[in-house]
Amino acid sequence: MLTKRIIPCIDVDVDDDGDPAVYTGVHFEDLQYTGDPVELAREYNAAGADEFVFLDITASAEGRETMLDVVGQVADECFIPLTVGGGIRTRDDIKETLRAGADKVSITTGALERPELITEGARAFGNQCIVISVDSRRRYDEDGEHYVEVDGESCWFECTKKGGREGTGVDVVSWAAEAEERGAGELFVNSIDADGTKDGYDLPLTGAVCDAVSTPVIASSGAGSPEHMREAFEAGADAALAASIFHFGEYTIDETKAYLDEQGVPVRR
């Protein structure tokens, strides 16, 4: 039986000495240092993670070099799928990242600014490696296309750019359907509202995207416990991503999977 995937996410930046380091944040800000990315990947691999996501949160060119180097080191040791995101804008960026050892690339701003990138990437490297990532933000005005009822209020979800700092006016649900149409192999759904809160995923968001597409959906942002992951799966997600609950040792991957297994969620153990 196809299992639901548990994916630890590692935000990688360079520290003051130029070495790669992992950070986690709240609402995409206030970053805290949590460790060495290659070491973390090795631990997660041994602990039974189903995949890794690496997000390059550096903007500099050196940061990018460092990142690709880390990707290679991880790919050499961990025989599970590796998705890399951050700053991917062109076909060459996709190629370079895959060549470094990534199996999939996650694209946010690059695809919003030039949707053809999805089609080009899918054609050149296969749909399976093009993951379209959205950084959603709830809006309670009249400008959206798809509305959901949340606590008695009607809201829609807007795609943001630059790590949530810039709005786009694009409706997440419409964009997800378009991305699928253009060849995205997977959708990675982040929420600015839920990020770092540990109050659970933005379930209305997860559900709305899952209803709109038939490609796999990864729920992200807000996980504080294995129960939250179960909720995301019930909302239709195929994979649940988490960063801080694993990095800070609040739950192990094994504890998470044991809980899900007990709850009847199929997981790889």
Partner: peptide, 30 residues
């Protein structure tokens, strides 16, 4: 079912072959 088939799913060994010498039914593959 959703297409693509993406993720970890179980194998059922149907017959002997050297590539499955150390693989058992129920093992997961990606």
């Amino acid at each position: 079912v959703k297409v693509p088939h993406m993720g970890w799913n179980t194998l059922t060994v149907e017959r002997d072959h050297p590539v499955v010498a150390d693989v058992e039914t129920g093992d997961y593959a990606y």
